[in-house]
Design a protein around this nucleic acid. Structure first.
Length: 556
RNA sequence: GCGCCCAUAGCUUAAAUGGAAAGAGCAUUUGACUACGAAUCAAAAGGCUGGAGGUUCAACUCCUCUUGGGCGCGCCA
């Protein structure tokens, strides 16, 4: 947390400086990491901002600030210099980095964990795939991103609940049940065909076979119940193999059918509330949500003229239920095909009396896959109804959980991605995830070897980190100390891909260190300092991998 | 037709409230294992950030237009 420390000192310094210039008001500046080709630890642009305010040459301001820095905080800053149009570049004292290593060693797997008790209750809803078919790789992407963000926010001290909203009610379940029933009757020898609207996937036949093997009397079979039960089980298995665990499974059927003592469901009640507040009205025999009042392009039906509620009605009740359970921040991961749905659900949140900002909807772009027909590749989108998709299960079987999760996390949610299964299989040989995991394996090897050598270093009491003064060591240490900043970055942007990218960079710094700086040598003091550094690397690598749900094996 | 998202090296892509010379990996070429694991390292090559304007001291980033892709526009979910 070096960045925080330096920012604090600089803000003090600058605010005093602003007073001497008689500038009032807050100057919003923050320190940044300079581009890689610049030789500096941090840089900041406040000289340019001040210069603009009082209309003087930024270079004059920069010179004065540099003077202040060198005079006032020499214990933090080794040197400060001006560059380009008025940037101030800082090189931090090595001692500050060494102190951070001590903290890593002390806090171990709690390094970077936010220590203060943060009471904000967050609910993250993700995957929520309809129980009408197996999970495909698109769901896998949502699962990897959502689960990883949940882990990161938890680490940063939030009270996080992971939830799967199960659409086990409504029209699609009816169609699913019908599809299974037709397959069942086909297997029994009846001449009957599926229509286009029915689910075409082979798994439907499996469900039907299962029912026949169960030897139930046809008239006693509840096809809805059996189909959902079977599919839900496969979904749960897939998620388990993907290391995704939900705290709660929230059933739509439950919210739609459970009645209170006045014979009303939560949906009934929320619709009544909306009517009362004039945010819903009746027209053409249906009930409408006045979502256009809050920015939606038109009003939407809540209750059809035949008396059945729409999916939207369930969703309003569901979101109200989330607030009712005490969550102050709602994070929803949705596939990008749902983007049109955002205005109406944001409208609902406001109608229910909450700040629209309390609901964060993160869209991830859909995954398409490359289809190989007679060696001609062709991009195709997934459709559960048509039975065209690549399942998460088969990808997991081919490339494994670690590679699969890492693959999804290398990209920002908003980037479109084409999944080439053939390539994924090949990539398993040379893959960034192994590059990162290899760091841990190498570290472990060194520790093991040092134990074999009578470990003289164990007798050294005072570790002298000053001996770690090569370029490779400094780069490695610096990278270790930005772990916390990376987590904050992920929090701010709600995107865990920064952690994956950070780990690759850390691995890069480590492998370079490994080549240049031999850890075990005759110099006992140097050896012990480097062994401690290796220990720090293992702590951070394991921490980081754990936050994105990837394992850190000792041997590969 | 209207709306949302995307376009960066041959491929997959990164880039912090606008900041310095746009970073990686794969593939290609060339070097390095008798010392802690070569799943590694060192080096070469590869870019008018789809195109055209504009705002700014400064644009991959913001605005307008345009081209090409993805998605959405139901009393479906």
């Amino acid at each position: 947390m070096i960045k925080q420390r330096i920012t604090k000192s600089l803000k003090n310094l600058i605010s005093k400086y602003l007073k001497t210039l008689k500038i009032t008001g807050d100057l919003c500046f923050c320190i940044e990491t300079p581009p890689k080709n610049i030789n500096a630890d941090f840089s900041f642009n406040c000289a340019m901002l001040i210069a603009k305010k009082i209309n003087v040459n930024p270079k004059i301001i920069a010179t004065e600030i540099i003077d202040l820095i060198t005079k006032n905080i020499p214990e933090l800053i080794e040197s400060a210099s001006m560059a380009g149009p008025g940037f101030i570049n800082l090189i931090v004292k090595n001692q500050i980095f060494y102190e951070e290593l001590e903290i890593i060693l002390k806090k171990k797997d709690k390094y970077g964990k936010f220590s203060k008790n943060n009471k904000e209750k967050i609910i993250i809803e993700f995957v929520s795939a309809n129980p009408t078919g197996p999970l495909h790789i698109g769901h896998g992407r949502g699962a990897a991103i959502g689960d990883s963000l949940a882990r990161i926010l938890k680490y940063l001290g939030y009270n996080v609940t992971k939830e799967y909203y199960l659409n086990d009610f409504g029209n699609q379940i009816f169609i699913l049940a019908k599809s299974v029933e037709i397959r069942y009757r086909q297997l029994k020898g009846e001449k009957i065909e599926l229509s286009k609207n029915h689910y075409q996937g082979k798994y439907i036949i499996n469900i039907a076979k299962n029912l026949i093997n169960g030897c139930k009397d046809f008239n006693k079979i509840d096809f809805k119940h059996e189909a959902v039960k079977y599919i839900l089980q496969t979904i749960k298995n897939d998620l388990k193999n993907f290391d995704v665990k939900f705290d709660n499974w929230f059933s739509e059927k439950n919210i739609a059918t459970t009645k209170d003592k006045n014979d009303k469901t939560e949906i009934d009640k929320v619709c009544e509330y909306l009517l009362l507040k004039d945010n819903a009205y009746k027209k053409d025999g249906a009930m409408w949500l006045a979502s256009s009042k809050f920015g939606d392009e038109k009003d939407r039906v809540l209750k059809r003229s035949d008396g059945r509620y729409t999916y939207l009605a369930s969703d309003v009740a569901y979101h109200k239920n989330k607030f009712k359970r005490g969550f102050s921040r709602l994070i929803n991961f949705w596939g990008a095909d749902h983007h049109g749905y955002i205005p109406r659900i944001k409208a609902c949140v406001q109608m229910l009396g909450f700040d629209e900002k309390a609901l964060n909807i993160i869209l991830y772009q859909l995954v398409s896959f490359i289809k190989y027909n007679n060696h001609i590749s062709q991009s195709s989108t997934m459709s559960t109804r048509a039975g065209e998709f690549v399942t998460l299960k088969e990808v997991l079987k081919e490339v494994g959980k670690d590679t699969c999760r890492f693959f999804f996390l290398l990209r920002a949610p908003n980037s479109q991605l084409e999944f080439d299964l053939e390539l994924a299989k090949k990539k398993s040989v040379k893959n960034p995830v192994f590059y990162v995991q290899y760091v841990n394996a190498r570290c472990k090897s060194i520790i093991k070897e040092s134990n074999n050598r009578n470990n003289l270093v164990k007798n050294i009491k005072n570790i002298n980190f000053n001996l770690l003064n090569t370029e490779e060591e400094r780069n490695l240490i610096k990278q270790l100390t930005t772990f916390y900043d990376t987590l904050r970055m992920s929090e701010k942007t709600m995107s865990p891909h920064y952690v994956a990218l950070y780990l690759i960079e850390l691995a890069d710094k480590y492998h370079k260190f490994y080549e240049k700086c031999r850890v075990l040598s005759n110099d006992i003091n140097l050896t012990s300092a480097r062994l401690k550094l290796v220990e720090c690397v293992m702590i951070i690598i394991k921490n980081g991998l754990n936050l994105i749900g990837v394992s850190a094996p000792d041997k590969m």
